[in-house]
C-alpha cells in the first residue's frame, strides 16, 4: 500500500444560482484513482482547467470530494475525528504558485516559519528560534533574514521561505502546486535543485503539479497526465517520456520548444499541426 491512495475521486462544481436560470455544471475531477509510494515524486501535468489543482486541494483536505476516498498513511482522510485529522495533517504540507499571497504580509519570516511549529510542538522561544534558523539555512537564506517581512524578498527567496515552512514539521508528503511556474528560469532551476536535495535529506515524497513538462521532467520520477478531469496516461519511467501515446500527452510534448535555435526553427513552428481550440 502506498503512502497516498486516491480511490475514484469525483468533484463537481455548480456555477450560477439555480433560482435565476440554468446552472452550469463543471466536472472538475471525474473518477481519478492514483497511488503515490513513499519517497517518490509524482508529476501531475495537464493544461489549465484539467483539474490538477482541484485534485491537489482534495487531498489536502481543503475541498471535500463528492465521491471517492483519500487514504493517507493508511487512514481515510475524510473519515477521521478532528483530533486524528490534525495529527495526520502535519505530515501533509503544501507550497503554492503565488508565493506572495501564501504568506501573511504582517508576519516576519521568523514567525511565518514558526507557525506550523507552534501548532504542533511546544518549544521554548529559544528552541523555536534555533529551529527556524536551522531551516532558513537549509533553504539557503541568511540568518539575519529572520526579522524581515515578506515584501523585502524577491519571488524566488519568498518561495524558499514557503518551502522552509512546509518542511518545518518534517512531513511525509508535500504538494507542490505550480511551485516554480511563476519564477525566472534561473531561479526555477535553483528551486528545483533545492527540492530534489530536500527530498533526499528528509525522505520526502512530492506531488508536483505543473503545466510545464520540462520542470516536471526535471524533478519527477513518475508522471500522470490529466485532461478534462481524468488521468489519461501514466508513466512509471521518466526515461520513456518520448513514448507517451495519448494525444493529449503528445500535444504537451510537442509544445515544448527546442532549447536551441536550429536552421529550420521557423519551419517547426509553421509546419506544426494546427491545434484545435
Amino acid at each position: 500500500m502506498g503512502l497516498l491512495e486516491l480511490k475514484s475521486i469525483k468533484k463537481t462544481y455548480f456555477l450560477g444560482s439555480s433560482v435565476w436560470g440554468k446552472r452550469k455544471i463543471v466536472e472538475a475531477v471525474k473518477n481519478v484513482s492514483l497511488t503515490l509510494e513513499e519517497g517518490v515524486c509524482l508529476g501531475l501535468v495537464g493544461e489549465s482547467g484539467s483539474g490538477k489543482s482541484t485534485l491537489g486541494k482534495i487531498l489536502l483536505g481543503l475541498e471535500k470530494p463528492d465521491q471517492g476516498e483519500v487514504w493517507f498513511q493508511g487512514r481515510n482522510l475524510y473519515n477521521l475525528k478532528a483530533k486524528e485529522l490534525k495529527e495526520l495533517r502535519r505530515n501533509l504540507q503544501v507550497v503554492f504558485q503565488d508565493c506572495y499571497s501564501a504568506v501573511n504580509p504582517r508576519l516576519t519570516v521568523g514567525e511565518i516559519i514558526a507557525e506550523p511549529l507552534r501548532n504542533y510542538e511546544r518549544l521554548t522561544s529559544a528552541q523555536e528560534k534555533k529551529k527556524v534558523q536551522e531551516f532558513l539555512e537549509i533553504v539557503g537564506l541568511c540568518l539575519e533574514d529572520i526579522h524581515k517581512y515578506p515584501h523585502h524578498f524577491s519571488g524566488g527567496q519568498l518561495q524558499r521561505i514557503n518551502i522552509a515552512r512546509a518542511i518545518a514539521l518534517k512531513p511525509k508528503l508535500i504538494i507542490l502546486d505550480e511551485a516554480v511556474s511563476a519564477l525566472d528560469v534561473l531561479v526555477q532551476v535553483q528551486i528545483l535543485n533545492l527540492l530534489a536535495q530536500l527530498k533526499e535529506e528528509f525522505q520526502l515524497s512530492y506531488l508536483f503539479i505543473s503545466h510545464d513538462l520540462q520542470a516536471v521532467n526535471y524533478i519527477a520520477d513518475r508522471l500522470a497526465v490529466m485532461y478534462k478531469g481524468e488521468v489519461v496516461e501514466r508513466l512509471d519511467d521518466m526515461e520513456q517520456l518520448e513514448r507517451l501515446e495519448h494525444p493529449v500527452s503528445k500535444k504537451l510534448l510537442s509544445s515544448v520548444l527546442p532549447p536551441y535555435p536550429s536552421g529550420e526553427r521557423l519551419g517547426i513552428i509553421n509546419n506544426m499541426t494546427k491545434i484545435s481550440l
Partner: peptide, 11 residues
C-alpha cells in the same frame, strides 16, 4: 539553466 527534456542535472 534551460531544462529541456533531458534528465541531466544542472549544477
Amino acid at each position: 539553466s534551460r531544462l529541456g527534456l533531458t534528465r541531466r542535472k544542472i549544477k
